[in-house]
Amino acid sequence: MSVLAFGARAGEKLNYDAKSFAAAQAAGKSILVEIHATWCPTCKAQAPILSELEKQDKFKNLMVFRVDFDSQKDAVKAFGARMQSTLITFKGSQETGRSVGDTNPSSIAALLDKTT
């Protein structure tokens, strides 16, 4: 797996920061933003599903940014998220889809498909 210019491997979760996210968007990357909380049972249910999907070849170039729902309120607001367990996909600067509270592997896979 090659190291990307952003200092992360494809499929690796990055702690969200606006500068890295903007650089990924400018580069036209496939992006998943996870609005996550450590105490959230839905987030915990999403984690193994996302982990398995991110291992698939078709998502090998997916950049995953994790926004902490509790400590990154400005980012949560900027993404228009109202609650944790929100998943937002982008292809470059274009938002391609979002879901809230979804723990269905098929529909999460369909959401990630919108990044390719």
Rank of each mutant, 00 (worst) to 15 (best):
A75Q: 03
F79E: 06
P41A: 10
A109S: 15
F79R: 06
A8E: 11
S20H: 10
K29A: 14
A109P: 01
A26F: 07
S107E: 14
S106V: 08
L50H: 07
A47W: 00
D57R: 06
D102K: 07
P48A: 09
F6S: 14
L53P: 07
L4K: 04
T86M: 01
Q84N: 05
M63F: 12
D74W: 01
A26Q: 15
D17T: 08
A5L: 12
M1W: 10
K13C: 01
I88N: 08
A110Y: 00
A109I: 02
R9I: 08
Q56I: 01
G97T: 05
G28K: 04
F21A: 12
I31T: 11
N15V: 13
C43W: 01
S93G: 03
I31L: 13
L14C: 02
S107H: 14
L50R: 10
H36D: 10
K29H: 08
A78M: 05
T86K: 01
K55G: 03
L50V: 09
F21W: 14
E54K: 12
P105M: 11
L4M: 06
A78N: 12
T115Q: 02
W39C: 08
N104M: 03
F69A: 13
F65I: 01
F69T: 07
M63S: 09
L50N: 09
I31W: 12
V33N: 05
A45F: 03
C43S: 05
S85H: 13
P48K: 09
Q56R: 14
A81S: 12
T42V: 15
A75I: 04
T96H: 01
D74P: 12
L4E: 09
L32A: 08
A18W: 04
K44W: 03
R66Q: 14
S51C: 00
A23N: 12
R98Y: 06
T103A: 07
S93I: 03
S51G: 05
K58S: 03
G97Y: 10
Q94Y: 00
T103M: 05
N15H: 10
A23M: 09
H36F: 15
G92D: 03
D74E: 15
A37Y: 01
S99L: 03
L14G: 00
M1Y: 13
R66A: 11
T42K: 13
P48H: 09
R98V: 07
N15K: 12
K73S: 10
L14P: 00
